[in-house]
Lab assay of single mutants.
Amino acid sequence: MTEYKLVVVGAGGVGKSALTIQLIQNHFVDEYDPTIEDSYRKQVVIDGETCLLDILDTAGQEEYSAMRDQYMRTGEGFLCVFAINNTKSFEDIHHYREQIKRVKDSEDVPMVLVGNKCDLPSRTVDTKQAQDLARSYGIPFIETSAKTRQGVDDAFYTLVREIRKHKEKMSKDGKKKKKKSKTKCVIM
């Protein structure tokens, strides 16, 4: 069974824990209790493949930012979460993405942009803004509501699919490099 290491990042209060708990335990946590770091595991079937999701729910508070490099190193894919009623959390996505790329030393890291709290009427981040940002990053965008469960499975499952595509691409690139290195030079 394939294991996928997913990391949920975003500013404090955007609903990272609520999304994760909704996926794992099928219930909505409405009281806000700032996370330092929590880890969850769940076995699911995605596109006919049974897999184990190892999900790291991270601290959004700035005082825990020193811990970010460590979990970013171990993560295979990242859910970059903002709240649709919090423009600052949307603007912060850029910083999370840049930090992930720096730590992973790669421009090509599996990510999904997630606009959470889409059940709320007080939207300050337009869907088109988020779609445009995701398009500019070359990553999928999904709106979710941890409260109603809308888009929750889709967000995590899409990230797994992005990781699969990335692994497939990397193995193809690896095979191309191996083929090239088999060419021999004969000096007579």
Rank of each mutant, 00 (worst) to 15 (best):
Y32K: 00
E49P: 09
T35D: 00
G10H: 00
K5S: 08
I21K: 01
Q61E: 14
T20F: 01
S17E: 00
E62M: 06
D57S: 02
Y40I: 01
L52N: 14
Y64P: 04
L19A: 15
I21P: 00
C51A: 09
V45A: 14
G10C: 05
V44L: 14
V8Q: 03
C51W: 12
V44C: 14
A59K: 01
G13A: 13
L19K: 11
V44N: 13
D57H: 04
G13V: 11
V45N: 11
Q22D: 15
G15N: 00
E62F: 06
T35H: 00
Y64F: 08
D47K: 10
A18R: 01
R41S: 08
H27C: 15
Y64E: 04
E63N: 07
V14C: 12
Q61I: 09
L23I: 09
T2Q: 14
G15S: 01
A18N: 15
E37L: 15
T35R: 00
G60Y: 01
I46L: 10
D54M: 07
V45R: 13
Y40E: 03
D54V: 07
Y4C: 12
I46T: 11
C51H: 14
Y40A: 02
A11Y: 10
G60K: 02
Q25N: 15
N26F: 06
D30C: 10
I46G: 08
L19P: 01
F28A: 03
K16F: 00
K42A: 08
D30V: 09
G48F: 06
V29R: 02
S39D: 06
R41G: 08
T35N: 01
D54G: 11
D47E: 10
I55Q: 04
D38E: 02
T50H: 09
D30R: 09
R41C: 08
K42E: 09
E3H: 14
V45T: 13
V14T: 12
I21L: 10
A18C: 12
L53I: 14
E49I: 08
E3D: 12
V44T: 11
I46E: 08
G48A: 09
V45D: 12
S39M: 07
S17N: 01
D38V: 03
